[in-house]
Structure formats: structure tokens, C-alpha cells
């Protein structure tokens, strides 16, 4: 998950350096250094935009990051865009105290790379439970339907019901859906729900436990 601290993406209006989670400036700089070192071509002289997805950076820090990039890597920084976390993630932060009892399956052999495939839509009142691995659903999960998995949950359709990944406490579990408009998401001991009136977004999304122990949702591009 280290690679997601900073990302370099090409958009229509040029290169964007996306700074994601809420961590300290020195760690960000280190991550940038690693990122640039890994690249095949030198990036010097390129003009980029910085997308700050970490509102915890204060103005001085972001200014510092800007000059750091200009001086160290000889980059031209066009602009610094700061994104509000709440506007960007569909799932609002719920207090970490909203922890729930885990669906313990201790003593069972759990193989997270082994997935149960469900070839039907999970309708209201139906539950799919897989406490020995992950779950892949070829269909939708409708409101009132429930999916519980020890590992990850992948819905190749719309997730409109409830999903509980990492049901025995594995916090690195993720929930991926082609349309993520759930009633409620649970990962490990964390519970979260989208803001009321959440509309379908038309692209796949992934939910995971982010920094600060909340379930965050972002556009799903790759694992």
C-alpha cells in the first residue's frame, strides 16, 4: 500500500502528482524520491500539478513541497489543488468507536486467495457467508441483501445492500463493486455508511480501511 502515498497520473491537462493519505511532509518527500527513482525516464523539466488529497498539510508545508519539487527535481509546478476529503470520498467518516463484534471463525482454515463464486443476485433477505476466504459475486447485492466474507468482497454488479469484509478481523480486506451504493459497509471491526441520498457514480469503486481508521472509498483503478 506504500505506492499509494504519492501517485503520478497523466490527465487531460497534464501530469498530476497525487498526494493521498494523511502523513507527514518528510514521509511524502521520501515517497516522492522513491517514486521518481523508480521511473525509467528522468522527470526533470516537466511541468506538473500537485493534487493534495491530504488536508492535514498546512499551507507552509504545501509551499515547502512545491519549492522542494522545483529545486530538487527541477520541475515546473503549475498549481497546487487541495481536495476536501469529504467531497472526494463518497463514504463519510464514521467515528472509530462504531466498532462491531467480529464474525469470528477461529480455528477455520482461511485462505484469502481462495474465493467463493456466487453466480446470482443477492436479494433482500438473502445472505452469502464465506468465512473461509473471499467472495466474488456475479450479480448485484440488492438492498436488504448481505454479504459476509473473511477476506475480500468483489461484486461484479451493483452493491446496494450490506457488505462485511474481513469478518474475522482482517483489516486489509477490501470491498470492490462496479457500482458502490451500499446501505452499509463493514471491514473488520469498522462500520461505515454513505451519506444519505448517495447516487450511483457510474464507475467501479473500492472501499478499504484507510489511515485514521475509517473506511474510505475511492475510484477503483487497480489493486
Amino acid at each position: 500500500m506504500d505506492s499509494s502515498i504519492v501517485k503520478l497520473r497523466g490527465y487531460k491537462d497534464g501530469l498530476h502528482l497525487i498526494v493521498n493519505p494523511k502523513i507527514s511532509l518528510s514521509e511524502i518527500e521520501l515517497a516522492i524520491q522513491e517514486l521518481f527513482a523508480k521511473m525509467n525516464q528522468p522527470i526533470t523539466g516537466t511541468s506538473i500539478q500537485i493534487d493534495l488529497r491530504a488536508p492535514t498539510l498546512n499551507p507552509e508545508d504545501s509551499k515547502h513541497l512545491e519549492t522542494h519539487l522545483t529545486e530538487t527535481y527541477n520541475l515546473v509546478v503549475n498549481s497546487v489543488n487541495i481536495f476536501e476529503e469529504s467531497a472526494e470520498t463518497p463514504i463519510l467518516a464514521a467515528p472509530a468507536t462504531h466498532s462491531i463484534a467480529t464474525d469470528l471463525a477461529q480455528g477455520q482454515n482461511i485462505d484469502f486467495d481462495n474465493a467463493q463464486v456466487v453466480r446470482q443476485t443477492i436479494r433482500s433477505g438473502q445472505t452469502t457467508r464465506c468465512l473461509s476466504g473471499s467472495v466474488i459475486i456475479y450479480g448485484d447485492v440488492n438492498p436488504g441483501g448481505e454479504v459476509i466474507s473473511a477476506g475480500d468482497i468483489v461484486v461484479l454488479g451493483a452493491l446496494r445492500g450490506t457488505a462485511h469484509a474481513g469478518a474475522n478481523g482482517r483489516l486489509s480486506s477490501v470491498i470492490v463493486a462496479m457500482e458502490l451504493v451500499p446501505l452499509q459497509l463493514q471491514i473488520g471491526t469498522y462500520v461505515n455508511r454513505p451519506p444519505t441520498g448517495q447516487k450511483q457514480r457510474g464507475y467501479p469503486e473500492i472501499a478499504r480501511v484507510g489511515a485514521e481508521d475509517i473506511i474510505i472509498v475511492e475510484e477503483f483503478i487497480k489493486f
Partner: peptide, 16 residues
């Protein structure tokens, strides 16, 4: 309306 659709969904599951 949402409540009728929710219940219909439940019934469809039972019939299936």
C-alpha cells in the same frame, strides 16, 4: 416505491 420494491425483491428470492 422503495418499500414495495424491497419486499418484491425479498419475495423473488424466496420464489427462486
Amino acid at each position: 416505491d422503495v418499500s414495495a420494491i424491497r419486499d418484491a425483491d425479498r419475495i423473488i428470492g424466496l420464489l427462486q
